[in-house]
């Protein structure tokens, strides 16, 4: 207090643009990574990257990744990690497939999937938070456990849902309008709502407070356990939506549904600029991170390199992004 000149005027309004840049360093940094990556893609394969099909194929799969990345940003911010979302995604999608296969409306299947997804998230959250287990290990165990519960009764058989295409739910959530995949719109709405939830809602600021200093948050009357569990429930919601959308896109449910998303989703969160230590993060950055990861997977092959290069470039981008964020971010203690 002493080092400050006392004055009657309120603090000077900081310059709007500077404040925006200062407050969004991480996500702007991620955006810069994306732009650089696209420039490189363009330089190597101008013909492919100036035409629509490559973007269309990215946009087909991107929404599923967005439904997963966004809630994972909340979990990492609160100071936890979740490795069980792939199985939760597969499990909820399985419920969706069973409901549709039984002849019910897909809307009903969606509702059932979301309820099951959130219930699984609640279960995982309670196991981690109230039993005081390490979320890294406990959710790894939950992932195996849930996947096992899918595999045992289905004996690894997939469910084909060819009738889906004629339904209202499909047209609303998964069709394409003028060549543009409609699921992108839903995923973008999800991202935008989550950005507001994270930055401008009581839930988001409490998630950040708990991740920043759990003792202080508790001393200020925040139920830190409840907030932690709530992030896992949100992850369950996102996983269920991801599962339903991916099943609708493919007209098929596979017992392995979700497995392939584990590492790319984790990568997207951190490439996006959410640090590992909790308290801060960026939903917008995570979404851009998901775009980057999707483009590497599609772009490398489309650019004429063999699929063997995908993992190499994935790794390269992750490491370079982390180095960039490390330089770009200050950790306050």
């Amino acid at each position: 207090m002493a080092s400050i000149v006392e004055q009657k005027l309120p603090a000077e309004q900081p310059n709007g643009l500077r404040q925006f840049v200062g407050g969004n360093r991480a996500s702007l940094g991620t955006l810069a990574v994306f732009v650089v990556m696209m420039v490189i893609f363009f330089a190597f394969a101008p013909r492919i990257f100036s035409q629509w099909p490559i973007y269309n194929s990215v946009l087909q799969t991107l929404p599923v990744a967005l439904f997963l990345v966004v809630p994972l940003v909340f979990i990492v911010t609160v100071g936890e990690i979740d490795l069980s979302f792939p199985a939760t995604m597969g499990f909820s999608a399985w419920i969706f497939a069973l409901v549709v296969q039984a002849g019910f409306d897909p809307f009903l299947g969606m509702i059932a999937a979301v309820i099951v997804g959130m219930a699984l998230g609640l279960g995982v959250g309670i196991v981690v938070v109230y039993a005081g287990l390490s979320s890294l290990v406990a959710t790894l165990g939950m992932n195996f456990l849930l996947r096992g519960l899918i595999m045992i009764p289905t004996e690894g058989k997939s469910i084909s849902l060819s009738s889906l295409g004629d339904t209202l739910a499909y047209n609303l959530f998964s069709s394409s309008v003028g060549g543009f995949p409609i699921q992108v719109v839903w995923a973008v709405i999800f991202v935008l709502v989550a950005i507001f939830l994270y930055n401008r809602h009581r839930f988001g600021v409490r998630v950040r407070a708990v991740g920043d200093n759990p003792d202080s948050a508790a001393q200020m009357g925040i139920d830190t356990k409840r907030i932690r569990v709530a992030t896992f429930v949100f992850m369950g919601l996102g996983s269920a939506l991801a599962g339903v959308f991916s099943t609708m896109i493919n007209f098929t449910w596979w017992p392995s549904a979700g497995d392939a998303y584990l590492l790319p989703t984790l990568a997207a969160v951190f490439v996006g600029g959410t640090p590992t230590w909790g308290g801060v993060g960026t939903v917008a950055g995570g979404a851009i991170g998901a775009v980057i990861v999707s483009f590497i997977q599609t772009g490398i092959v489309a650019g004429g390199l063999s699929g063997f290069y995908v993992q190499f470039f994935n790794g390269l981008i992750i490491i370079l992004s982390l180095l960039g964020h490390r330089w770009n971010q200050i950790r306050y203690r």
Binding site: R208, A209, N213, S216, A217, Q219, G279
Partner: peptide, 29 residues
């Protein structure tokens, strides 16, 4: 508190209203 109980990565506003956020409709700040 003796250790001040602040969340140092958050803004001054967020610390002042920690656990006592001023919210409007639907819990938005």
């Amino acid at each position: 508190f003796q250790d001040r109980a602040l969340a140092v990565q958050q803004t001054i506003v967020r610390n002042i209203f920690m656990g006592r956020e001023i919210t409007g409709p639907f819990g938005f700040l």
